[in-house]
Design a protein around this nucleic acid. Sequence first.
DNA 1: CGGCATGATGTTGTGCACAACATAACAAGC
DNA 2: GCTTGTTATGTTGTGCACAACATCATGCCG
Lengths: 264, 264
Amino acid sequence: MAATEDGNRMEGRTGKADAPMTVDSGARRPSDEGARGRFERIYRTLRMRICLLDHAPGSRLREEDLAEEFRVSRTPIRRVLVKLEAEGLLRSVHGVGTIVTDIDVNELAQVYELRVELAELVGRLSPAPVDAALIARFHEIRARCDEMVSEGDPRTFSRINMDFFHLYNALTTNGPLREINERLYYQTARIWLKTALRLRNSKELIHTEFTTFQREVTDTTEAIEHGDLVAAGHVRRAHIAMSFARIRKASETEGRPVIAPTAG
Amino acid sequence: MAATEDGNRMEGRTGKADAPMTVDSGARRPSDEGARGRFERIYRTLRMRICLLDHAPGSRLREEDLAEEFRVSRTPIRRVLVKLEAEGLLRSVHGVGTIVTDIDVNELAQVYELRVELAELVGRLSPAPVDAALIARFHEIRARCDEMVSEGDPRTFSRINMDFFHLYNALTTNGPLREINERLYYQTARIWLKTALRLRNSKELIHTEFTTFQREVTDTTEAIEHGDLVAAGHVRRAHIAMSFARIRKASETEGRPVIAPTAG
DNA sequence: CGGCATGATGTTGTGCACAACATAACAAGC
DNA sequence: GCTTGTTATGTTGTGCACAACATCATGCCG
């Protein structure tokens, strides 16, 4: 049991080498969950798919298809879409469709600007107590990260990055701060993967991203081991700022998108 | 025309002495607005009612009543309620009803903690250009504030405070920051009015609140006139922190609620 | 008289049919 | 050939009836 509402574990974690296919809908569960549980499940599934680019920016999400996949009618699906639209990941237009919002580096500059500032607040506002279990979870992430550096693909990287975010976000007990961090994170989560897929030819840059993230995880873990949450905040702040700087640089050097494969 | 999406003006502003009755639903508009416009209108109306305690914490909002008032069916109403629930102002429970969330000083401490930090970011992150029109709007608020100090009631105070917030929030062009500030503001907007209504016997404390807010508006206006948005941020930060401290103190000195009149 | 089962009542959640709307294809006219 | 009006098609938005669920009253039994 042990209510761990902080963790935000996703479904479909099959261990180390999870298949690069689309996120499982988790359907075929007749009634072992209430209406609210089903809502949360569908919401999280779609959110992760959008952020892993399973639903590419600009593509359309037909409500009826989703309804069929999740074995419900359009009504509960629309609830989820309304929330995702409020989060800025979707946009529904009457008579046209619900399309996944496109992401632009310049628009996201403001979000990153904010994330940089908020990163330091974690661990400064209402720091969570650091116990052995928490440290163990950081070590686990670091292990997955070390493994990924040598043989990982961008998608796996994004998954680990997502898990690391949730772990880091659990360092504060300030609920509103956690919510806002989560919202802003998922607004920017796609841009790295999108950039990485575009630059997947130059493996050098990709490797730089991997090792940089590895350093962030290592440094953060060490700070946590010392119980210095403020230091962890500084590490995170620096890495968010640098990460965005690299993304922006990459999108400047590259000219036109020549976008990734279509559902291949 | 001049798209002023920043202002967030509410409907029902009848000038200086607006009636203390409930916020007008703005119904009786057949089709001069699209589906999205209607959604926004209903959403803002309900949000303002909740924050002005027209819908007291703990009270129930029957979907059918709202549907009848706004001349629509339950379906679009539910969309609004879903969003308000995501904002933390409502909570829908299957088979029970949608109840207005109660507000507790201790729970809101975290929100205030965050608002204090974010207040300074306005004007520091992506400051808006200060022109004569903007200064004029600050002067207008100050005039309304001066008038209210002598003959205002707590409800009028809350309205002016709300308008001042929107004006202050327009000092940054960082969209995500504005959204977050708005969300957090409306989560805490009710607590002042609730406390003031409880203490409406001791007019001394109420008057202190009025004059304190008057000073905040005056200081902020002066800072804006000098184009010093950072100073405005410091003023705001200080006043948010002090305001919460007074609210907390008031709720400590008072023992039990002995809650306000019931729809009388 | 107290406790508990059972039905009545009221509310939100769901499913489905239709309306409102936008777009694309197509044909008529210039 | 090009433009334009019209129709066909597909999508989201709305309304309504019913199911799922919780609560309260009632009456039975101990």
